[in-house]
Amino acid sequence: MTTLTQLQAVLDVLKLAERLKFELRHSYTSSGRQESVAEHTWRMSLMAVLMEPHLEQKVDMVKLLKMVIIHDLIEAEAGDMSALDVLRNPSLRLVKQQREIQAIENLRAKLGEPLGPEIYELWFEFEEKTTYEAKVANAFDKLEVQLQHNEADITTWEEIEYDMSYMMDKHVTFEPTLKRLKDLIEEQADEKMKASGIDTELIRSRVLAR
């Protein structure tokens, strides 16, 4: 039987998770405001639901959704550090990892058995990208980011994000359907940049030369 202590732990984590509604990410929405972590996670979850029938390999949908929903939960405690910040200052990568590991360990302790260890293991599975579900979840993570960039005003893009629009291949090569979805999202980015007078051929050449 579920105890009051277990239910209180759930409420405590839900209270913590409420922070994700106002923890802002680097990405902007089409309305011109920054998106929240919660909004990113919600659309990743929707991507999973809508794409599941099209994946060429059977996926454990319950596991996939759990992984998607909890992958950024640690940011309620650790905060969001964008990939751009880490690219600009690689020393931040270790700081980010340490904060996130401490946050997931705190969540495991707070929730206790049996949920704490399950959340903990799913988070590390997502990070390690070894299982099919983890690879799919990570692909959705990267694709949703680019999709949001495509929907934001081009003036919110940093120059490095022009390059990143053509750097998603490594996240989708394992799944043909996700590769095709990536191509569509990449085409949107390409058209958006061209419409703003950006030389996308030069950017493609720069990315290929890396």
Results as ranks from 00 to 15, higher is better:
53 P>Y: 00
4 L>Y: 09
186 E>G: 09
53 P>I: 02
97 Q>A: 14
156 T>C: 01
150 N>G: 13
105 E>Y: 07
198 I>W: 08
169 D>W: 08
14 L>R: 11
94 L>S: 14
42 W>F: 12
61 M>T: 05
56 E>D: 00
85 D>K: 08
96 K>A: 08
58 K>G: 06
166 Y>L: 05
74 I>V: 15
200 T>E: 09
23 E>D: 09
206 R>N: 07
143 L>D: 07
62 V>S: 10
161 E>R: 15
209 A>T: 06
107 L>E: 02
34 Q>W: 01
46 L>D: 05
176 P>Y: 10
90 P>Q: 02
180 R>H: 12
13 V>R: 00
184 L>D: 15
105 E>V: 10
173 T>S: 05
23 E>Y: 06
93 R>V: 03
50 L>V: 01
70 I>F: 14
96 K>E: 11
104 I>A: 02
149 H>N: 10
200 T>N: 07
67 M>W: 04
53 P>L: 02
160 I>K: 11
98 Q>W: 03
94 L>M: 14
57 Q>L: 00
29 T>F: 08
160 I>P: 01
1 M>V: 13
180 R>G: 08
178 L>Y: 04
4 L>I: 11
145 V>E: 04
31 S>R: 11
199 D>C: 09
81 M>D: 07
134 A>V: 02
142 K>L: 14
210 R>Q: 15
75 E>A: 09
141 D>V: 01
201 E>Y: 12
128 E>Q: 15
167 M>D: 06
144 E>F: 08
93 R>P: 00
119 I>Q: 00
114 P>S: 03
84 L>P: 00
97 Q>S: 15
84 L>G: 01
185 I>C: 09
5 T>N: 05
63 K>V: 03
83 A>D: 04
180 R>N: 12
166 Y>C: 03
55 L>M: 04
186 E>H: 08
40 H>Q: 08
26 H>R: 15
134 A>E: 02
139 A>S: 09
107 L>T: 05
191 E>F: 12
89 N>W: 01
56 E>L: 10
62 V>T: 12
137 A>V: 05
129 K>L: 07
34 Q>T: 02
7 L>H: 07
14 L>F: 13
105 E>D: 14
21 K>W: 04
80 D>P: 05
24 L>N: 00
202 L>E: 15
202 L>P: 03
150 N>E: 08
162 Y>A: 10
207 V>T: 09
117 P>N: 03
139 A>I: 05
187 E>F: 06
15 K>Y: 01
203 I>D: 07
113 E>F: 11
111 L>K: 02
88 R>L: 05
26 H>G: 03
163 D>Q: 03
114 P>A: 03
82 S>T: 15
23 E>W: 07
165 S>R: 12
185 I>Y: 10
122 L>V: 04
95 V>H: 06
109 A>L: 05
136 V>S: 03
21 K>V: 01
27 S>F: 06
81 M>L: 15
158 E>T: 14
169 D>R: 13
26 H>N: 12
87 L>P: 01
80 D>A: 14
188 Q>W: 14
84 L>E: 05
178 L>W: 04
203 I>F: 09
51 M>R: 02
155 T>A: 07
182 K>L: 13
23 E>P: 08
189 A>C: 09
121 E>C: 00
8 Q>M: 09
58 K>I: 13
49 V>L: 15
129 K>G: 02
159 E>H: 10
190 D>M: 10
64 L>T: 03
44 M>I: 14
9 A>L: 11
142 K>C: 11
29 T>C: 11
96 K>D: 08
